[in-house]
Each structure stands twice: as structure tokens, then as C-alpha cells.
Design a protein around this nucleic acid. Structure first.
Length: 418
RNA sequence: CGGGGAUUGGCGCAGUGGUAGCGCGCACGGUUCGGGACCGUGAGGCCGGCAGUUCAAAUCUGCCAUCCCCGACCA
């Protein structure tokens, strides 16, 4: 992608109203645009990041047998009345459809997937089954805040698992837990797993929390055994596992996993026939992961005073070519050549590319300082400077590091493709 | 939902009663050219909305809306 064509350009100043760090940096760098409190447009750079996070999540969900589906945003109010959540789910967006019909904008999808499964699950042979989706959720939060960390409309992955019994469900629960650790490791942000109350939804649950002072959750981490707990289940000053001292930390909840109670299966008649021919209730688990919130969390934990530092796995581009002296036709030609050669495949035409994704700052008559500042702000992992000074070796700098390396084009390709 | 702050060109801001100004950005011309360069010229705003006070309102009063922060809430 040529920067001269990229929409939109960076902003020098922080728009008023953007107080949280992720909001400020993402808006200034041109990744998102706020439409109203808690609602954002994802601009080209932001959408690419969201897409990369989604793909990592997808791969790990598929690896544990998940099958991707896509459920509706618009739900029949009827289903929510059946579970009682039409009244009790207090951040529910309700609207009226044709014929004065009650409708709901989905904040979660039990009310869709249970009736769906009830129609198809008959035998123990149909189980277990793992279905997930990556979908926009709507929650009418009394106070949306902190940029992408707490929106009213946000992107979330939700996985629902269905089993013949609780033991099988608990086995799968452990697999999902491991998959979550892999996901956050690949994405490049540290997480701790905390024990949490399950609310009315579940007897217990576990959350994946990114520790950072800007988080809105409070968690307690044991200094002895490393176990972590959410505030609501902590009774005293000591670890529930080993009795060690607890340290209070702020954190962002990026994932949440639950073994579900039977209530929904009962309401929607989700039963199966076992080997003995007996009718039995289905056991289920529910596993959420906030995709857009994770994007905000990455920025909160990975930045410096100049801008964002994207982990390689989710960066919108891998290489940022900063072209200087581009008024000189020779230099421009050289920069173009490097730009094309880096792209083994053509990432501008294919969404899933095998080539190196490159952003080329091809602006003419823009000062070096402006280009460097923009590169710092946008936060792409590798910066390659092409200028009159460029000889056989390219000037390469990692966004996350300080020292400048000098590499041939082949060496650079090796580095960024590894 | 309680408390506080804010709302003025695209963005950031100043403007305490006499029908709007600065910086950035933008356009054009010129000089610059490795860390957000400079000079000149120019375009761009019925000051969040409604109602009121006044000869006169961005400015005073009332109501409303929106955004941000603190808290409550967060299946």
C-alpha cells in the first residue's frame, strides 16, 4: 500500500474527548474513528488489525475442532422472554419490528444457538459439537468508555460447546483454556488467568486478564503460587489456592470461559438420546474473547511516547518503507523496486497474502521528520529507509528496538519472512 | 443512573454584551530537504439546539442534546 493513497492521514493533535491512551493513539494514527460513545468505525489500518486478530483466533478455534458459523445480530424477542433475559439483561438493546414485534440486538447468542441446536441434536452420536462465531455484539452500557475497552458495539468471538456429560465438557473446557493461552501468546500480549464468579450464568468461570494500570478490572495475583482471582471472589488477603500474599492489580478482561448451567438447555429443550436409549440433557460451555477489546488492550500495553508498537502477528503491515529524497527519480525508482520485490505476492489484491505486507511512504516533498513521526505513530514492526544515501545495504530499524541495522534486500526478506 | 467538566472553521484552542480570531491542516507560488522547515497569498465558521433577557448575545438566564472523567453498573 502506498501511503499517499491510504485513508486517512495521521493527526498531529489528539481530538478532544479522546482521553484513554488506546483511543488517542488509534485515532491519531488513523486506525479508528469514533461515531458516538462506544461506537467506532474501523478504518483501513484498524480493520486490518482486527482481521489479523480474528484470524489467529480462528486458527486456534479450528485447531480444537471448532466450526465457524455466523449467527444474526437481530434476535426474536420471544427467545429472550423464554429465558427471562428480555427483562433481566439490563444492557439489552430492544426494538420493535414490523407488526409491533419485539426484537433484540444480540449481546450474546445463547438465545439463538440453543434453539438452533435443539432442532438438530438428537443422538449422542451428534455430540460433542463445538460452534463459534466472530460477530458484532451490542450492549447498552450505562457508560461506554476507554476507547475500544468498553464499547456499546464491539467485535467478539463466542464459542459454544455441547456435550453428552459434564466430564466431557470439563475436558474440552481445559482444551479451550490452553487454546486461549496460545492465542494471547501469538497475539503478543501477556495475560493471567483469573478465577471469577460465574454470575447467574455459571457456577464459576475463568477470565483472561491483561495486567495494566489502565484496566478497569481489579484482580489479585498471588505472589507465591501465581494464581489470580477477580475481586468479587476474594474474601480476605490471602490466596484461595495456597494462602500466599495477594497483590492488587488493574487489568483488562480480554477473555472469559464458562461451564454453563443447565437452565438454557432446559428452556430450549436441548436433549439427546444416549446409548441406552434414555433421554438426557445436553451439557454446555461458553467461551468469549473480545476481539476489538484485545486491539485496544494491545495498544495499552505496547506503545511508547511516540506511538503504537504493534506485535508482528497483528501489525497492519510488516514493513514500512520510508522514502526520502523521492523528488529524485533514481531514488523513487529504487524505492519502488524494493517495494515491489518485498511483496512476493500482491497483498493489495488478496486479503490473505503470502507476501510481505508493505506500507510505502511515497509522499514527495514531505520532510523526513514528518515521515519518521508518522512511522513511529503507526507502529509497523520494521522500518526501511530508502534515500540518496542508500547503497547496497538498506537501513532497517525495528519499531520495538533502538539500533539501526544495515541489511541487503535478501537479508531483509529473510528477517521479515521468518 | 448520581457527581464534575466540556461543546466556537476539517482538527486543537482563544475570545465577560457592540454582528468572530489564533495555531495546525488544506489550496497556490517560492525557498528548504535525515526527526513534525520557512516566507508570501488564499479558501473555509449564521459560535451544539430551542426558548428567553436586551437597542444589541459566542458572551447573560432557562430547558434540552452530545462527548469526556469519577462513581454505581458490567449475564
Amino acid at each position: 500500500m502506498k501511503y499517499s493513497r491510504l485513508f486517512p492521514k495521521t493527526l498531529k493533535q489528539v481530538p478532544s474527548g479522546a482521553e484513554s491512551l488506546n483511543h488517542q493513539l488509534l485515532v491519531r494514527a488513523g486506525f479508528i474513528h469514533q461515531e458516538m460513545a462506544g461506537v467506532y468505525t474501523y478504518l483501513p489500518l484498524g480493520w486490518k488489525v482486527l482481521d489479523k486478530i480474528s484470524d489467529i483466533v480462528r486458527e486456534e478455534m479450528n485447531a480444537i475442532g471448532g466450526q465457524e458459523i455466523f449467527m444474526p445480530v437481530l434476535h426474536p424477542g420471544e427467545n429472550w422472554k423464554k429465558t427471562g433475559r428480555f427483562k433481566s439483561f439490563d444492557v439489552l438493546y430492544k426494538l420493535k419490528g414490523a407488526g409491533d414485534k419485539d426484537l433484540v440486538l444480540g449481546p450474546t447468542h445463547e438465545e439463538i444457538i440453543y434453539p438452533l441446536l435443539a432442532e438438530y441434536i438428537n443422538s449422542y452420536k451428534d455430540l460433542p459439537l463445538y460452534l463459534y462465531q466472530i460477530q458484532t455484539k451490542f450492549r447498552d452500557e450505562p457508560r461506554a468508555k476507554a476507547g475500544l475497552l468498553r464499547g456499546r458495539e464491539f467485535l467478539m468471538k463466542d464459542l459454544y460447546s455441547f456435550h453428552t456429560d459434564d466430564d466431557d465438557r470439563d475436558e474440552y473446557y481445559k482444551k479451550v483454556r490452553e487454546a486461549y493461552f496460545k492465542i494471547f501468546k501469538r497475539i503478543g500480549i501477556p495475560v493471567v488467568k483469573t478465577k471469577a464468579s460465574g454470575g447467574t450464568f455459571s457456577d464459576l468461570s475463568e477470565e483472561f486478564q491483561t495486567l495494566t494500570p489502565s484496566g478497569e478490572d481489579t484482580v489479585f495475583v498471588c505472589s507465591k503460587c501465581g494464581a489470580a482471582f477477580n475481586e468479587e471472589i476474594i474474601k480476605g488477603k490471602n490466596c484461595l489456592d495456597c494462602g500466599g500474599d495477594l497483590k492488587k492489580e488493574k487489568a483488562i478482561e480480554v477473555g472469559n470461559i464458562f461451564p454453563l448451567k443447565r437452565a438454557y438447555a432446559e428452556v430450549f429443550n436441548l436433549y439427546f438420546t444416549d446409548k441406552a436409549g434414555e433421554k438426557r440433557i445436553v451439557s454446555a460451555g461458553c467461551f468469549g474473547l473480545g476481539i476489538s477489546r484485545t486491539m485496544g488492550a494491545i495498544v495499552e500495553v505496547s506503545h511508547d511516547e511516540k506511538g503504537i508498537i504493534w506485535p508482528e502477528s497483528v501489525a497492519p503491515f510488516k514493513v514500512h518503507i520510508v522514502g526520502l529524497d523521492l523528488e529524485d527519480k533514481t531514488v523513487m525508482g529504487e524505492a519502488e523496486k524494493i517495494y515491489k520485490l518485498l511483496q512476493v505476492a500482491d497483498p493489495e489484491r488478496s486479503r490473505r497474502t503470502e507476501g510481505v505486507e508493505v506500507l510505502f511512504d511515497d509522499r514527495v516533498n514531505v520532510s523526513a521528520g514528518v515521515k519518521f513521526a508518522d512511522a513511529d505513530l503507526i507502529g509497523i514492526p520494521y522500518r526501511v529507509v530508502v534515500s540518496k544515501k542508500t547503497g547496497d545495504k538498506l537501513e532497517v530499524k525495528k519499531r520495538s528496538g533502538k539500533e539501526t541495522m544495515f541489511k541487503t534486500l535478501e537479508q531483509l526478506v529473510d528477517i521479515v519472512c521468518s
